[in-house]
Design a binder for these strands. Structure first.
Lengths: 127, 127
DNA sequence: TTGCATTTACGAAAAGCTTCGTATATGTTT
DNA sequence: AAACATATACGAAGCTTTTCGTAAATGCAA
């Protein structure tokens, strides 16, 4: 599984949210958040195409790019790597860290509780 | 807050676990996991010293290095950054990802449930 | 068709990370 | 003291990531 860099992740995120886009569209989105030249965005996307992170088709005179990797898969592999380097493989330590310090909203906490319930149904304990 | 690189994190981890160490001791530990030259470890630690990630004292002829940042603080800031880049700021999405895919052990799940209970006591809801 | 705007392609610079070779200093042993 | 082992300091190479300038191609408009 290819590991996208931070900049590549920005671009993937736009594609995951907005769907297939041209360099111009991506550049416009990225420009909302930070200063970035058009050819910089282009170059990044060409590199991502070479790496296999994006596919593309010719539409009239410009290319239309599509994410070649799913958000789910990408996040999973990034999390795996992160858990490895930062928490020496302990996923639960990561969760504890996040729950302890990020003030998750009421809804988010409820979501997490529901997920835990589901996990319990799969292999319930006595509590 | 300074962001340690992956290699620097390896060294910090050894220092967090083993306490103050010489370059030689660190090099021996790192060598368990991968090929790395002595001067490579030395150079990394010198850079970390310059960055303020380590302190050091002269012991006889060699230096003894100590982590200048805590494991807790470092992990928190790395998690913050990671949540930002990979989950666009949604800490709960990260938690969902981890709980959904990493099979946490029974004990780990219980730990997490207890933590959630504590959070509830701070600001309980009707469930 | 000539010129203009837009797009892609290409190359390369700048910065950060990792790596190590070589030189220098310092202590130890004979 | 001389030779040796061990430590540090320094510089630089090789890679990756990010950035953009410039050139070449392509379509549109006058």
């Amino acid at each position: 599984m290819v590991k996208p860099t931070d900049s590549e992740l920005e671009i993937l995120h736009v594609l995951w949210v907005n769907g297939p886009s041209t360099v111009r569209q991506i550049h416009e989105e990225l420009s909302r958040n930070r200063d970035i030249g058009y050819t910089t965005a282009l170059k990044l996307m060409q590199i991502m195409y070479d790496k296999g992170l994006l596919t593309r088709t010719e539409d009239a005179r410009s290319h239309v790019y599509t994410a070649a990797v799913s958000e789910e898969d990408t996040q999973r592999s990034l999390v795996d790597r992160f858990v490895e380097t930062t928490f020496r493989g302990s996923a639960s330590k990561l969760v504890m860290q996040v729950l302890g310090h990020h003030k998750a909203s009421r809804e988010e906490l409820d979501e997490i509780k529901n997920l835990l319930k589901q996990l319990d149904q799969t292999s319930p304990d006595k509590q």
